[in-house]
Design a protein around this nucleic acid. Sequence first.
DNA 1: CGACCCGGCATTGTGTAACAATCTGGCCGT
DNA 2: ACGGCCAGATTGTTACACAATGCCGGGTCG
Lengths: 215, 215
Amino acid sequence: MSPATSRPTAAAALAGVLRTQVLDGHLAPGTPLREEALATEHGLSRHTVRSALQQLAGERLAEAAPFRGVRVASLDDDAVRSLQDLRRAVESEAVRLLVARHGRAWPEAVTDVLAEHLASLERSAGGEGDRLAVLSDHAAFHHALVAAAGSARLTEVSAGLSAEVRLFTAHLRLHLEPAGLVAEHRAYLDDVRLRGPAAVHEHLAASQEALLTGR
Amino acid sequence: MSPATSRPTAAAALAGVLRTQVLDGHLAPGTPLREEALATEHGLSRHTVRSALQQLAGERLAEAAPFRGVRVASLDDDAVRSLQDLRRAVESEAVRLLVARHGRAWPEAVTDVLAEHLASLERSAGGEGDRLAVLSDHAAFHHALVAAAGSARLTEVSAGLSAEVRLFTAHLRLHLEPAGLVAEHRAYLDDVRLRGPAAVHEHLAASQEALLTGR
DNA sequence: CGACCCGGCATTGTGTAACAATCTGGCCGT
DNA sequence: ACGGCCAGATTGTTACACAATGCCGGGTCG
């Protein structure tokens, strides 16, 4: 999903740039995405803009209401809890599959990718305060963990959930502490291999606490 | 989602009728949904038809490929396995929540709805061979089980999954035995209260077997 | 003073017509 | 038989127009 532009169709390309804008926190939750404005701004017709917005809404990065337009998605407390329910379902099932398949000794191919994600997260956390990179790496780590289970549908849902988390965390009032985040996830990766789904439950419970209090 | 028509917008209404057509098996998987044809058939413009098709594709009841149009969704063996992974994730987490909250004695409000779904399933199975009603009731039962957990996102994903299962089962070569289906799900409801997620695993494993061999 | 109604403006939903971009299937020559 | 190529079919996109709905403010009435 990296190249936000240069997609086969103009609508998909626009969806790409809007997606990165949203995920980078350049648009606050609740911000209306006006068709006319986007059309003139990007030199497209309203129809293509509408198509792109419908895509975004489908990914839950925006909310569409009939005759009231599309806005950047925003989550209230209940939505966050419910989101965490789904994250728990997906991630714990992925981990369960991994443990069922490999026991505690996961293949190097798997642990290497995950370790690389952690390293990248640590670099971002260590560098000058690039909060966005930290959040992106954090989301990518969780997504990679699920992807390691090798189930296309689990992976796809996880991609969407990671994006939602990234969007939400980008607008937290109390920012997550990068150093703490790195430490937690290093421990998490070890823990999850040893204890499986139970570790997922604990991690996401702590995560939920942080998300709800820091908003 | 019952009233397929009479939605605020024409696009949503068309999406509704297409959805019921697809779910009732009136359109074989792989069938192309041509914009022009649908436009003239329903007296709409191509734009609104496109919007409706994009909705359907978002629900995974259809597949869209750039410049190649939208077709009724079809699942190969890998897609079925992957779909079952996700069903397992969602349904077992829902059951885990239910058991964590209520133990083995679920509230009457919950057991009543589920029992009513089973009763409806049994009626459909007992009646003259209305295969579609059986499949619809079957999907509705699983959806209701997840919905009982009270998590909006789990419920929503489950709705989509149930629809996909309904679509897939509608086109099975070897049809599911209605009587067996009823018995299995009666036992399942009891089992899931006693043993929780483990019962979900077993049920969906058996289900997967049936789906893969019966296609 | 507040609640309500009403009207105008902004915005979205839909239609028509046309053209460009891409895919598809069949014909052709080698 | 094989690949290339052309013509038709289909989708992607645009421009313009109008209808339908939501939003916001002023005015009126209690």
